[in-house]
């Protein structure tokens, strides 16, 4: 295999933190850990180019470093791009992840990297990349490279990489169905028996942790504010003009309520299979409370009800999709001068 390898200034032998600003450079052949990489890859594999860059330089000039790395991999007709392993070095890990992701996306060349689980590069890139769990200890370089090489060989041969625990990479969080020997009932019984008797057990899914979201400041005087209604309950005008799907919508719609004081069931439909829609169809204000908000607008308690309500279908929606829709809705409302939002969720 022809390999392009990325190292930071430390592993590239240029120096420690004091050299972190050193600019990117390209060397012919293997450097430092690259020699070990050639060895564990075997089969006459060679590191044809080594790209070395200071951690700060990479962090501050990521786009140009990415461009350069992609170009090097392309020019060298490499079969594999390897970055690191980076252990706990955070800036190194983030750069390695970004470079691997760029090479993978632009060239489709197999990529692999390695990091300690706590490296910030892991959270950013685990879903996209095979990141070997290198541990924290630089002395485990060889072990990490052996795992990276095993994954690289499978990627190069276009084979299934296998399970995280078997191959030593950090779970990417991608789910694949498999038919197993034991029914769910047997697995449940095994697990409760283990958990109640103090034996080890392995959960089949690790829960997602959510970062706290900084709360926006309050809007003390709503009588001066424009308030919008947003819902994930799938309410759309009759005829469903945007083609809202009844599950996991990838779209959101904005529907005019400027001249409406009370939503009538006959004018609306619900596209959401996750709850019984009949009550909302009987009176859509139960989901999108236009009637009382317009009253409060007339009473002066609310400055203005935004002229549209925004709607999407939340049911079984992938998180990445929900995040994108959330961003788009927030941006659109912000640009329209909306000060506050009431989101209604089913």
């Amino acid at each position: 295999m022809r390999v392009v390898h990325y190292l930071n200034q430390f592993f590239g032998g240029l120096g420690g933190e004091e050299e972190a600003n050193i600019a990117v450079e390209v060397r012919e052949g293997a450097v430092g850990p690259g020699r070990l990489l050639e060895q564990v890859l075997g089969d006459g594999s060679t590191v044809v180019k080594t790209v070395i860059c200071g951690d700060n330089h990479a962090a501050e000039n990521l786009d140009s470093v990415m461009e350069l790395v992609v170009e090097q991999v392309r020019e060298s007709q490499a079969d594999l791009f390897v970055a690191g392993p980076c252990f706990v070095a955070g800036r190194y890990g983030v750069a390695a992840g970004a470079l691997c992701a760029a090479v993978q996306a632009e060239l489709g060349t197999p990529v692999v990297t390695g990091m300690a689980v706590e490296n910030p590069g892991v959270d950013l890139y685990r879903q996209e990349l095979y990141i070997v769990d290198s541990g924290e200890n630089v002395a485990d370089m060889r072990a990490a490279l052996i795992k990276m090489a095993a994954i690289a060989r499978k990627l190069a041969a276009n084979e299934d990489v296998g399970r995280p625990a078997d191959m030593g990479y950090i779970p990417r969080g991608i789910m694949k169905d498999e038919i197993v020997e034991e029914s769910a009932a047997v697995r449940l019984a095994n697990m409760i028996l283990a958990k109640t008797t103090g034996q080890p057990y392995e959960t089949e899914l690790t829960q997602t942790g959510f970062e706290p979201i900084p709360a926006p400041p309050p809007v003390p005087d709503l009588s001066e504010a424009t308030v919008a209604i947003v819902t994930d309950g799938g309410l759309v005008p009759a005829g469903n003009p945007d083609g809202m799907p009844a599950i996991a919508s990838t779209i959101w719609g904005a529907y005019d309520i400027a001249a409406v004081d009370d939503l009538e069931g006959a004018d609306y439909e619900v596209y959401h299979r996750g709850y019984d829609n009949r009550h909302v169809l009987n009176d859509p204000d139960r989901l999108v409370p236009v009637d009382v908000l317009k009253e409060l607008e007339k009473a002066g308690e609310v400055g203005k009800v935004y002229e549209q309500f925004l709607s999407m279908t939340g049911l079984a929606n992938p998180l990445a999709n929900s995040r994108r829709i959330g961003r788009e809705i927030a941006e659109s409302l912000k640009n329209a001068g909306v000060d506050a939002v009431i989101l209604t969720s089913t």
């Binding site: 019984d276 909302v280 204000d285 139960r286 009637d291 089913t346």
Partner: peptide, 22 residues
């Protein structure tokens, strides 16, 4: 099935409930 309503209430009571939630 009705974040801002209650089909078990009569319409005026239901609107009072909705107003109080809003």
């Amino acid at each position: 099935v009705y974040p801002l309503g209650d089909a078990g209430l009569d319409p005026e009571e239901e609107k009072d409930l909705r107003r109080s939630i809003v």
